[in-house]
């Protein structure tokens, strides 16, 4: 497997780009790349030439996260002041705005069926689930307090929830916190199951393997990428190689490789069979905040976005 650069757009945004995700194709258009940036805009790019399709404005602070509905028609973006805007991709009509106290919205992900939007709740130490039909809050999955701490004790804010991921069957939900713990929830019963331990610094990104609802990949500031058996509560693999924080991770649609982006300004491709880094792309000149594999389509594509304001697209084969 390898990555080959296809196209890179310098100054794709006016400032640092913080988030990227792929909108699946619909009947009327091919898949689009969605990026969110500190310049308070969300932009859509047509693959493979990375032609700018549209720029959405409306946020008042930097856009920290974007999420794409599995059907490709709806997307959501959130800014640092925790203002979530859900919009129709083709018309840019606002479908809903979800408000939460600032710092209580971080990463967002739609569930595989598209019925629920999970929002990592930042300082609230929980994951909020929004129904995508009514856009009402349907559940709050809270991380239980560690034993021995009083409810009045505000050290609960230590569990700042940064990232969230759905298992491919939609039954489980995992979220990563600032103190390095990962919490796994049973979504149907709305119940906390257990913590996964091993990271000791913030977990900024995590993703389930598309084939195996047990296998979870996590990226952390402690420079490691971990592979967990999320059901058996066991750390089953450790991939190290980045020189600084690992900010983002995504798994390839064939489930054979993962890509990571890091503060050391590189994108790495990891072969899961070898559990080793097989390629390092160092075309970015600042930290890489987002990597995303294109979910469908014939040729494998990986996009990466960075603080250096550029978007890069690679061929994955």
């Amino acid at each position: 497997m390898k990555l080959a650069g296809i196209k890179s757009v310098e100054n794709a945004h006016d400032d640092s780009i913080w988030a990227a995700t792929w909108l699946p194709s619909t009947a009327s258009r091919p898949p689009l790349l969605l990026t969110g940036s500190l310049d308070e805009t969300v932009r859509m790019w047509r693959s493979d030439d990375l032609v700018l399709e549209r720029t959405n404005t409306g946020h008042c602070l930097g856009v920290a996260s974007v999420a794409a509905h599995p059907l490709g028609s709806i997307a959501a973006s959130s800014s640092l002041d925790s203002f979530v805007r859900v919009f129709d991709v083709d018309s840019n009509a606002t479908i809903a705005t979800l408000e939460a106290p600032p710092s209580e919205v971080w990463q967002m992900r739609f569930d595989p069926k598209g019925a629920v939007l999970a929002v990592a709740g930042g300082g609230s130490a929980s994951v909020k689930l929004w129904d995508t039909n009514t856009w009402e809050l349907v559940a709050t999955l809270s991380i239980p307090r560690p034993e021995g701490s009083k409810p009045t004790d505000k050290s609960g804010s230590k569990k700042f929830v940064l990232s969230v991921a759905w298992s491919p069957d939609g039954k489980r939900l995992a979220c990563g916190s600032m103190d390095g713990t990962i919490s796994v929830f049973d979504v149907q019963r709305g119940k906390f199951l257990h913590h996964l331990e091993g990271h000791y610094m913030p977990v900024r990104s995590l993703v389930y393997s598309p084939y195996d609802p047990r296998l979870l990949f996590t990226a952390s500031d402690d420079t490691n990428v971990h592979m967990y058996d999320a059901e058996g509560k066991a750390l089953v693999g450790n991939m190290s190689g980045h020189a600084s924080w690992v900010l983002c991770v995504d798994v390839s649609p064939d489930g054979a490789a993962i890509a990571t982006g890091s503060s050391d300004k590189t994108v790495r491709l990891w072969d899961l069979a070898m559990r080793a880094s097989v390629q390092t792309m160092s075309n970015h000149t600042d930290q890489v905040w987002g990597v995303a594999f294109r979910p469908d389509g014939r040729g494998g594509r990986l996009a990466s976005v960075s603080d250096d304001k550029s978007v890069s697209l690679y061929d994955y084969s």
């Binding site: 602070l61 920290a64 600032m178």
Partner: peptide
């Protein structure tokens, strides 16, 4: 912008 980046880096 810088402060936003700083805040984004460590939202807690």
């Amino acid at each position: 912008r810088y402060l936003q980046r700083y805040f984004h880096q460590k939202p807690w």
